[in-house]
Amino acid sequence: MIQISPHAEAAQACKLDDRSLYLRRLVLRAVRSAGRGHVGPALSLIEIVRVLYDDVLRIDPRSPRDPDRDRAILSKGHGCLALYALLADRGFFPVSELDGFCGTDSILGGHPEYGMVPGVEASTGALGHGLSIGVGLALAARMRGRTYRTFVLLGDGEINEGSVWEAAMGAAKHGLDNLTALIDYNKLQSYGPTDYVMPLEPLADKWRSFGFAVEELNGHDVGALRTTLGQVPAVPGKPTAIICHTVKGKGLPAAESNADWHHKNKLTDNELDAIRVAVGDF
């Protein structure tokens, strides 16, 4: 039997502050416009992406290709609504772009595209690609003597992919302590619970045995994320894996831990009313 992590329990109980609610409103604004979107996978990610873009990444929206910028790759590309909300809010593109989400001529598709969306470092959507690209970026920094850092956000379902573990071995081989993997461990993939689809436990031990320094935290706790992300690498000479215990659909009671909200095709009037109650009018 799997032991429930105290971080997972804390994630369930965690209250969201005004900024977290505001960012959720941005996500839901895009979903409402498009009539579709991966709601659950975006809402579990919001605080992780928020702390990265607000507090951790050395980036400047006015110069998104600065060679010294920190790199962040959303390997679980289906969580892009959280990324779009942050990029829009930080000024990489106008917030009004969110209203075109998934439109024929929009820059914002259902998975993020490099070259289309300012601030997006790699096109993702097919799972199991981002960590390898991150290894390449981090190795290039090492070889070139650059100080930028690379962060890769992975889904828990995503790490079913064998290529993730190939990349983990590669990162450890090169001792890439400028590389951090963040795992959005919401414990629910498309079909259902991760421990039904493909059990991941003992997850921290897995990453540790692959040569990573491992941290675990409540992925909705902004303070804990700031502290832990502010101290990477956790161990010099090793890549870091941060297992972020989260709740899929966090912030919308109807969506929380509900596999039916993995991808939402249309929102009913009743659902929209419930969203307004949960996160405020949008």
């Binding site: 690209i133 991150g134 290894v135 390449g136 290039a140 290529s163 081989k173």
Partner: peptide, 21 residues
């Protein structure tokens, strides 16, 4: 030499090429 992990090697090469290699 990066091991028998072609999927990873291609992704890693992409990352290196993004940085000018």
């Amino acid at each position: 030499i990066e091991g028998i992990s072609e999927a990873h090697i291609i992704g890693m090469s992409a990352g290196l090429a993004m940085e000018g290699y």
